[in-house]
Design a protein around this nucleic acid. Sequence first.
DNA 1: TTGACTAATGCACTTCCATTGCATTCGTTT
DNA 2: AAACGAATGCAATGGAAGTGCATTAGTCAA
Lengths: 160, 160
Amino acid sequence: MFKLLLPYLCFLHAYGFNCYVLMNDIEKFLTSKKVRPTAMRILVFRLLAQRQTAITLTNIENRFEKSDRTTLYRTVKTFEENGLVHRINDGSGVPKYALCEEGCECDIHNDLHLHFHCNRCDETSCLTEHKIPQINIPKGYLAEDINLVVNGLCDRCNVD
Amino acid sequence: MFKLLLPYLCFLHAYGFNCYVLMNDIEKFLTSKKVRPTAMRILVFRLLAQRQTAITLTNIENRFEKSDRTTLYRTVKTFEENGLVHRINDGSGVPKYALCEEGCECDIHNDLHLHFHCNRCDETSCLTEHKIPQINIPKGYLAEDINLVVNGLCDRCNVD
DNA sequence: TTGACTAATGCACTTCCATTGCATTCGTTT
DNA sequence: AAACGAATGCAATGGAAGTGCATTAGTCAA
Ligand SMILES: [Mn+2]
Ligand SMILES: [Mn+2]
Ligand SMILES: [Zn+2]
Ligand SMILES: [Zn+2]
């Protein structure tokens, strides 16, 4: 453990963090997903895990005092490719990312839950309990994936 | 009629067209939608009307020998604001536009049809016959609009 | 018919974000 | 300790949205 922990604490400092972070669980999880648990990846993962709503790359960037957008870009891309996060296109123009649920298999398209985008606060949330209903498409077409975004007012903004 | 027709033929030439276009119907339609039927608008409308699938702004731009992207941008925006076209976000990153159906009232969200995006040819089509089914959302949320895009293979690409 | 007024256009420019190339650094393995 | 591949940081490119402003076109009312 020390073999891993010590250098990371060093790195965390380099990224502007001076707190100690217990990351053994995250390390293990990343490793189980074939993602090498580097310092930045652990931080990004932790950030995603703490959030209730999806975030953009710029959003992630701003959460760190010191960060390189490219690294974050590739970090999120790696996460996506390895099924740790899924990308959400909520119509706001820039993609957002959210952690996949335990057991979610977005990559093989069987966790088709709704996404809700709030027109007021611009937050986008995964409605993981709400699955996409059966959709009929014309003869000759082959469906491989479905993206359903509901726009409106989220529960926090819908209070008059 | 001539009062309108003659200057337009002149403009069409300026835009790289040397054909005569019967545009009285388009003129009338644009006027009925409170959109002043200028030369460029007529051309863009005609282009949209001819297409079976949605197109991007860049796509439109490339269809004209001589064109200004800003004008096209504002043309499409005007069309959208006046309910002539609707914007489709198919997940490809750039928005696409398609003519609204006769009687479609996208602006007040009661023509919620599916959109199909082909992963192979990247074409996006309106499935106007296929309406979005009833969607349940959590208590406290207020739905105002729904975007449903099915990705897969279109009928042209789904031939083995 | 003309002149005045408003709308539309074209051009230049800015901003935002995705994406890539490459040199450097890191982490692991031998 | 050396070596190798992976990850990172930096610089640069490219695509597209959006804005400001001067010019031009179209409308309308004398
Ligand atoms: Mn989700
Ligand atoms: Mn449509
Ligand atoms: Zn909200
Ligand atoms: Zn296709």
